[in-house]
Design a protein around this nucleic acid. Structure first.
Lengths: 212, 212, 212, 212
DNA sequence: TATGAATGAGTATTCATTCAT
DNA sequence: GATGAATGAATACTCATTCAT
């Protein structure tokens, strides 16, 4: 069971009333984060939207940055959870390397797409905040390990060092998808058509690489 | 011959004195941009470092943002110029697809690495500024076209639609390299060892994709 | 009972501490307004003189202009109150039209004279600020109505349409007095001698007009 | 013949080219003064609109304020000239006091109305600028003297000290008309209907005063 | 004389954070 | 614990005026 990311930066309230207020302020912050496409909101606004006093926010978080970090961390946690669930599902249905890769990349790209805004904010946050950066790397590594484990199920089809290749594949996959999603969070991103072409090409490339 | 990017946002001064002052303010801004890793500097500082009055800055640029845009645009222009020069060189020395890809990716990754900070700033700028975004897309497309032209020199070795594959290859190359450089500009990035592994793996993947 | 003009532009604080701070900032602003003969003062100065933080000012008012508007509005309110009090007094002591007119104009001119600076500032404010303008018109109309009511006490002495004449008389009275006070707020205005002549002549003219 | 007001604050250029440039800058300033309803324009704008260099402006005027003063002074001069012309005309056609007063006030009010904006700017200018203030008083006195001379043509009809009464009449006339014009320069002023009522009432009052 | 680039002092406003109630 | 009024440092931008060319 994933531990709440918020717990890492917050005094955990025991009272239900306090838990509700913590939820309200984080929800408000998330909402504003999405609306504004960044942290260009004031704590006054969080206070208003979430119906929490500013003092309460400072009772839970040491700074505005802390609050934002917690919200993004939680979002990333939830995304990781989605990934794990999706992964189990994908693995069950795949009986060869090509179909696994295709299924995995497709699913993963959808998850990234759904979380594009929060992800890009978390990545922006990471540059410049060593803690977030480390956290991000850790999470990315977890996912990479997982994908590698999946690929290794089909080790017999792979030519060369399966482990090394698997990790490389993940990094390239993530970089490519992330870039084409997060390059810009408000534009319509890439056209659906191009997106499909990109994903398919990427899969072909991966399979070619692993099996040659 | 590439036209200075600055010319697109600036009244071009004819006087040598003015040109010098324009250069001083842009240099100062670039220096501060690098030192601070972002636009967290004041115009007072630009004024001091560049020995230009604040009024002069506003005489040339409509806003601080404009100044930053111009500096980043110029840096991107210069990088594009480097790319073009490098490309000619690379093409001359390569007599098969594998060696071209290897040489190109290696050279390109070095150029990106040298310009990592400015590039990441430009990318950050692009998200949220449609104009910069468009400009960035245009530039990326130019480079993609160029790389594709290079790959097509070895069309005979390629299996499938060379043109489509070539463009895909560029996008994946750029995404992978950019991500591993720009994700964070102040950390020591990736270790040199890992970096070499990444670049080599990427090349193998590309070649495998193109020739299968 | 007149409602404080300030209440119309300000969040009314319930706490005594806050009320005190609101009073301090308005007093400071009024003082500076008078000292400088206009709004050529900075909020830094208000902050210093009134011993209130700049933030507090912005907590109460949306802008410097708003603060000035509130101070002038309050001053005009107070002046209107003075007028009302004076009017009752004047009416009691007068037993014929001539003596009423003389008493009224004299008293009114003294009130205007005492408030000359704030009045001229409010008039300046009104030009260019529709809200203030409307407010000014309303106030002027109220006073005109009142004076007309006074004159109508002596309707039997009046030749022609008493109501119409009464309003005209007020407008001419106000214009004449205001002009000779506000034309310039720092100069020694008109000499006392001339002023007396003016007021007397004005009264004569009014009486002649009403009774012919 | 009226001496140009500008001559009092300006070095007079002998060259026709210079005269043209002086005219251009004053015209530009007048235009901007009218457009903006005040001196809220920059010398850059004067420079652009009038196609004169900023240096040229400073060659003719010591400061922006000086330029504005000159433009307003010129406008006031022209208005005075209009008044004089109108006065001669009015006097010729009038054969009794009442008709003279009526004609004079009507004409005068039209002149004021046509010059309302420049007049109100000049009055604003005067408060706070002793020189302009004195100039304004002088001009007003000239007009007062003139009107008094007119009234004295019908001395036989007047009861009391004609001279004293005449001056008072002028001041009250001017104050009333000026106030109802300049109170606000952008609003539609007073309705035409009210305006006519005001002017007629004023005339009646004056005649009643003079003949009783 | 004419030009217009350069100067830089001056100021309203924002908002994270504190702390008295 | 909760509240939200108070704090005040920090900063982009304007524009009259000067003066080198």
């Amino acid at each position: 069971m994933p531990k709440s990311a918020a717990s890492q930066v917050t005094r955990k309230p025991k009272q239900p009333r306090s838990q509700a207020s913590l939820k309200r302020m984080m929800d408000a912050a998330r909402q504003l984060l999405i609306e504004r496409g960044g942290d260009e909101f004031t704590l006054q606004e969080v206070s208003k939207v979430g119906e929490v006093s500013i003092g309460s926010i400072y009772h839970r978080f040491e700074s505005k940055e802390d609050l934002v970090r917690a919200v993004l961390g939680l979002a990333m946690s939830e995304m990781a959870e989605e990934e794990r669930n999706s992964f189990v599902h994908v693995l069950k249905q795949s009986d060869n390397l090509a179909s696994f890769v295709r299924a995995y990349v497709t699913n993963y790209s959808e998850i990234l797409r759904d979380n594009a805004l929060m992800l890009s904010l978390a990545m922006r946050q990471a540059s410049g905040d060593p803690d977030s950066s480390r956290e991000g790397y850790r999470r990315e590594k977890d996912t990479a390990d997982e994908m590698a484990r999946g690929i290794l199920h089909f080790e017999s089809e792979i030519v060369g060092d399966a482990k090394v290749k698997a990790h490389l594949v993940f990094h390239i996959t993530f970089a490519t998808l992330a870039r084409h999603l997060s390059l810009d969070s408000q534009d319509p991103m890439i056209e659906q058509q191009d997106w499909n072409t990109l994903v398919e090409g990427l899969c072909d490339m991966i399979v070619a690489y692993l099996t040659n």
